[in-house]
């Protein structure tokens, strides 16, 4: 292992390597994966002079701690959290120099769910099918971080940081998800479609990178029986037999047999991924 690497001191609840995702293999059953809040991951990359698609760490609620073996510029973005270097407070949302051997501590999210840690040069694990992303559905890409693991870093390019501060939209008390109905809205009753847009839904604690699960009123089917498996898209609102909508996120399966009542706009999904369990969710039909 070269000096361009970091050791994992504290892996946190779930920390994975993510880039823009793994495209072009859905027909072989390969999920797209990639950062759940790609805007935040891209901004963190830009703060350290990387291209927006460089691989970063994505934490979940409890942050993580790493010890780079070489001096490296990092930036923490996404869900706001305390950041320290060898115990001394450092900036969130800005480039931070971490000396060789120092511990970068990314604390628990103060708001939101997922923080992003970008390193100048990017996390340089071996790509699989064109992506370094961890895919939790099918196990492609690197394992989630484990205490004591060592991950390689890439060489910083000539890129200079193109911004020096990160605005963050924050997480409102309610997540509004704009949807377009279909392709299987005709499998549900008119009442179910009204319930989808008026029901009091909340983010379930069973949510993960595969899907945002909801708690709330069940959607009643108009068509009984089974739908033959069909291709699934990011943002699909799939309705399993219990009637509670599930919004498909980056690690979603590529085919599925439960009807999709609507599809959430891609740009609204980052907010869905940053919503802590219990947050209210409102589905709004947008033309």
């Amino acid at each position: 292992m070269t000096d361009r690497a970091f050791a994992v001191v504290r892996a946190g609840a779930l920390t994975t390597v993510q880039d823009r995702g793994r495209f072009g293999h859905a027909h072989l059953g390969v999920p797209r994966s990639g950062a759940l809040d790609p805007g935040a991951a891209g901004l963190a990359n830009r703060l350290v002079g990387n291209s927006v698609g460089a691989a970063v760490l994505e934490t979940t609620l409890t942050g993580c701690a790493v010890r780079p073996r070489c001096a490296v510029t990092v930036a923490v973005g996404g869900a706001p959290c305390p950041v320290t270097v060898d115990g001394r407070p450092a900036a969130w949302g800005a480039a931070v120099r971490v000396p060789a051997g120092a511990v970068l501590e990314v604390g628990a999210a103060v708001r939101g769910v997922r923080s992003y840690v970008a390193f100048a040069g990017g996390v340089a694990v071996e790509p699989v099918l064109g992506s370094r992303s961890t895919d939790l559905l099918s196990g492609l890409g690197p394992e989630p971080l484990a205490d004591g693991a060592v991950l390689p870093l890439g060489r910083p390019g000539a890129g200079v940081p193109v911004c020096d501060g990160v605005p963050w939209a924050g997480v409102a008390g309610e997540v509004v998800l704009r949807v377009r109905l279909g392709p299987r809205d005709d499998w549900f009753t008119g009442r179910a479609l009204r319930t989808l847009t008026t029901g009091a839904y909340r983010v379930s604690a069973a949510s993960n990178r595969i899907g945002l699960r909801t708690e709330g009123p069940a959607l009643e089917r108009a068509v009984a029986g089974e739908l033959p498996s069909e291709g699934m898209v990011l943002g699909a609102v799939q309705v399993p037999p219990d009637g509670r909508p599930v919004v498909f996120l980056a690690d979603h399966p590529t085919t599925g047999g439960y009807p999709v009542v609507a599809v959430v706009r891609e740009r609204d999904l980052a907010r869905a991924a940053q919503a802590v369990p219990g947050t209210r969710v409102r589905f709004v039909v947008a033309g």
Binding site: A26, P228, E230, G231, T254
Partner: peptide, 15 residues
Amino acid sequence: VREVVPAARTVLLDG
């Protein structure tokens, strides 16, 4: 077209 996903009796054209 980013993804072409055939299934039981459908073909999804995504992206």
